[in-house]
């Protein structure tokens, strides 16, 4: 993990998000969020063109995929 990225993320957490736990906890969290954010960005990009615009479509989809009530 690039130290500069982690330092920037920690600084942002402290200055913008006003988080002030022990610095090694923020560092651990920053490393985690950078790693997972990179993975999600890289992996999701192929699916990105299929975005639904409203999260509420998910709730509607659950109902649509359910078996009929009269089973």
């Amino acid at each position: 993990m690039n130290n500069k990225r982690v330092e920037i993320a920690v600084a942002w957490a402290e200055e913008v998000q006003a988080l002030s736990p022990a610095s090694n906890d923020l560092t651990a969290s920053a490393e985690g969020v950078l790693k997972s954010s990179d993975l999600a960005r890289n992996t999701s990009s192929d699916l990105g063109m299929k975005f639904e615009t409203e999260p509420s479509n998910f709730i509607k989809l659950l109902d649509e995929l359910a078996p009929d009530d009269d089973r």
Partner: peptide, 11 residues
């Protein structure tokens, strides 16, 4: 704490 902080920093 570390896990919640991860969420607080998620874009």
């Amino acid at each position: 704490l570390v896990r919640f902080l991860t969420g607080a920093m998620c874009p």
